[in-house]
Design a protein around this nucleic acid. Structure first.
Length: 651
RNA sequence: GCCGGUUUAGCUCAGUCCGGUAGAGCAGCUGAUUUGUAAUCAGAAGGUCGGGGGUUCGAAUCCCUCAACCGGCACCA
């Protein structure tokens, strides 16, 4: 006998091997009918599986969102695979996991799927759901399963079978005549699937087992929810996300463009460059405040240095090579556009003998880097071939790592807060199997990073073995306004490069030592971070970052001279202001500048000219406010003050 | 880099299946209008149909090829 405890606290005894379906039936017929699965001690199980241990049992219904969504998405993956094989019997099935808001399933088929195929598959899936085919499961032994898939000619399933660990049961399951290998759990019958709350979204190629050396399969993605309304809400959310796409906003707000002659490189326009400069100026002030010294190093550097640093061997394929066609040169110099700044920073460090008294030495650079990214990787500002990092390298002793890490955490959290990101996640990656440096130094560095985060009071996740070969690292992921995560900040200890490039200092003992180098960035790349900012704010940047802060618009042409005067006064106060004296109605101007995300419109008509006032309208707010010219300049100047300067002025 | 899709006026898109000398809206330009907080009216103009090659009497349309972009996959020091 086993004893099962229910969510209401009651418990009952059942013979060992009783299924959750039988338990449900023993409680109420309606429960048995509407149940979708069960949870035994928090483990999600199938209603049809025999239960052999006592524990806490909950019968899951459609209202239990987490198990319901998992089952719906999971079973829809199978239903889709069945639909595809019923439509095209020669298609081979592979694997189809639940993911994000739905699932995908990879198929091996010579012909790619078309949008029309997706519609046909959806229709077939609805037929299968309408058939209310019961789900049946069996545990098979490995040999039988192998024989089955050999006979069926399903090579991918055979490979999956071989990857199932020896101690795990091989589960087969059916709905209708269609069979698949799957660990489960599953719904009772296909009729429990919501026929109107799923949608096949797109087709894409995907490598078998995620391995670029294996065949490319055809992947079909779907999304699914419990109800039609939830699906609709999801599709609406996607539309909203598309509206804040930085590539679209970049065009609409005239921030930047990219073109065929320079793929992956940004042509910044005046508006976009205004944001960039504001952000750079802000970061420069922060760095100065935290004791960094700014430097600037060359972009074109002889391959010799990259050979010494080790980058040539590892990343040469991804570097832009620069040669000069010198007539008669015996040996051509091969240069590379720098893909990163660290080797150059070590060169700066290496100039002049360093003492332990010089440490920690924090060298910062807004370093312009180029990497030849694979063509398919490029994506607007998010992934580019030419970018600028808010890069810095801290040369220090092992004992200084923790304090440097603590100071960095403080700086990073402050920057993220100022830029509108209140929360971020930290990931600590520790020593990998292949690494440089003694265990003693890894112990010390890992403890220093963990200690600094602990003392600062931040939670973090450890990724064992995920560190770089040269040292442990912290990665910082921020969350944007619509819940997406972006890895931006990084803090990496490096026990390799300083010795490789001959960095040294004289210690208090008079002997020569090798410093530790800390690579760190907060924004990552300016290009990408601006993309994130634009999407986070949907183009409506806070006033201090807004590219066009104020438009002064005339209502009648008699006000033109005064409009120019107001504009000039605002510009004198350091505000990015523009005059709009075009021969258009004020409605037209308000609409156009509102769509252009200008935060403040100052309308000026005869009344304002006479009274020397302006009528101020805020973006997305109805109505306007009349203010005296002096008053509005002072008020907007205050509002345009970057958060760091505001904070220091307040002290 | 791989799979699929896309590329037509500054922008958004129709025309491509079934080859017959390129079309709309908005923007821009010109003129009228002097306007009070999200599109005033009228007129004229604007395109080597992504590049190159081929088939054809004739190609935006069919074929080949290159490129860029979009969605994924792989990659991301």
């Amino acid at each position: 006998m086993i004893s099962l405890t229910f969510p209401d606290g009651a418990s009952r005894d059942y013979p060992s091997g009783t299924t959750a379906a039988e338990v449900a039936a023993s409680i109420a017929p309606s429960l048995a009918k509407n149940a979708i699965s069960a949870s035994l001690d928090g483990r999600h199980i199938d209603l049809a599986w025999p239960i052999e241990t006592s524990g806490a049992l909950a019968i899951n219904m459609l209202k239990d969102a987490a198990p319901a969504l998992e089952l719906i998405r999971h079973d829809l993956a199978h239903v889709m695979a069945r639909a595809v094989q019923e439509l095209w019997p020669d298609v081979k099935v592979t694997i189809g996991p639940v993911r994000d808001y739905g699932w995908f399933y990879d198929f091996d088929r010579a012909e790619p799927f078309t949008p029309d195929d997706l519609a046909a598959i959806e229709a077939k899936m609805r037929q299968i759901i309408a058939a209310r085919d019961p789900v049946r499961t069996e545990v098979w032994d490995r040999a039988r399963a192998r024989a089955h898939y050999e006979a069926a000619g399903e090579p991918f399933k055979l490979e999956l079978l071989d990857r199932i660990p020896g101690d795990e049961p091989i589960r087969m399951y059916w709905h209708g005549d269609w069979q698949d290998l799957c660990r489960g759990p599953h719904l009772q019958h296909t009729g429990q699937l919501p026929a109107d709350a799923f949608k096949l979204t797109h087709v894409a190629g995907a490598y078998w087992l995620g391995d670029a050396s294996r065949p490319m399969l055809q992947r079909i993605y779907g999304v699914a929810f419990r109800t039609k309304d939830e699906l609709k809400a999801h599709l609406t959310m996607l539309e909203e996300a598309a509206k804040r796409d930085h590539r679209k906003l970049g065009r609409e707000m005239e921030l930047f463009h990219m073109q065929e002659e320079a793929p992956g490189m940004v042509f910044w326009h005046p508006n976009g460059w205004a944001i960039y400069r504001e952000l750079e100026a802000y970061m420069r002030r922060r760095q100065i405040a935290y004791g960094y010294k700014e430097i600037k190093t060359p972009q074109v550097v002889d391959r010799m240095l990259w050979e010494r640093s080790g980058h040539w061997e590892a990343y040469r394929e991804n570097m832009f090579i620069v040669e000069v066609d010198e007539e008669g040169a015996k040996e051509k110099r091969i240069n590379a556009l720098k893909p990163m700044n660290c080797p150059c920073h070590v060169q700066v460090y290496n100039h002049g003998l360093k003492s332990y008294r010089d440490l920690p030495l924090r060298l910062a650079e807004f370093g312009s880097c180029h990497r030849y990214e694979p063509s398919g990787a490029m994506h607007g500002l998010m992934r580019v071939r030419g970018f600028v990092q808010d890069d810095a390298h801290i040369f220090c002793t092992e004992d200084q790592i923790e304090a440097e890490c603590a100071a960095f955490l403080e700086m990073l959290s402050g920057v993220y807060r100022d830029l509108g990101f209140e929360t971020f996640d930290i990931k600590l990656s520790t020593r990998p199997d292949v690494r440089v440096g003694s265990d003693a130094i890894w112990d010390k560095a890992e403890a220093a990073l963990a200690g600094a985060i602990d003392k600062a009071g931040y939670p973090y996740e450890v990724n064992p073995g995920d560190g770089a070969f040269y040292g442990p690292k912290l990665d910082f992921k921020l969350t944007d306004a619509i819940g997406r995560e972006w890895q931006c900040g990084t803090f990496q200890a490096d026990f390799n490069l300083p010795s490789r490039l001959g960095a040294e200092y004289i210690g208090p003992d008079g002997a020569t030592h090798t410093p530790v180098m800390l690579h760190r960035a907060i924004l990552g790349s300016f290009e990408r971070f601006l993309g994130i900012l634009i999407e986070n704010y949907a183009g409506k940047l806070p006033f201090w970052l807004a590219p066009r802060q104020v438009v002064v618009a005339s209502i009648v042409s008699d006000a033109d001279a005064y409009v120019e005067e107001v504009t000039a006064a605002l510009r004198l106060a350091g505000i990015r202001a523009e005059a709009d004296t075009r021969n258009e109605k004020i409605n037209y101007k308000v609409r156009e500048h509102s769509l252009g995300k200008v935060p403040v419109i100052l309308a000026v008509g005869q009344r304002e000219v006479a009274e020397r006032t302006v009528s101020m309208r805020r973006l997305d707010q109805q109505g306007s406010r009349s203010l005296a010219l002096d008053e509005v300049v002072a008020c907007l100047r205050d509002e345009a003050t970057p958060p760091d300067l505001r904070a220091s002025a307040a002290k």
